[in-house]
Amino acid sequence: MASEDDKLAEYKKRQKMRSIAIAVTLVVIVVLFYVATLIRLGGNVLNRPY
């Protein structure tokens, strides 16, 4: 049976990995929206009125 310290260490490790996964997901979503917007706007992005 794993000791309490081992369990706590594993708990923290998994929590950290989940946090990293969520952070990466959020960054990916931002990038997807950004690039997709550029693609959809195409050349019009440079021709907007000022």
Binding site: E4, K7, L8, E10, Y11, R14, Q15, M17, R18, A21
Partner: peptide, 28 residues
């Protein structure tokens, strides 16, 4: 544990058979 000034975050009960280390990213 985790309630003292040296530890941040929520309280975690570890001294129990019911204590779960939580799901890993792979298990999700």
């Amino acid at each position: 544990v985790g309630t003292g000034p040296e530890r941040q975050g929520p309280a975690i009960a570890v001294d129990s058979d019911d204590f779960s280390v939580g799901p890993s990213v792979g298990e999700f």
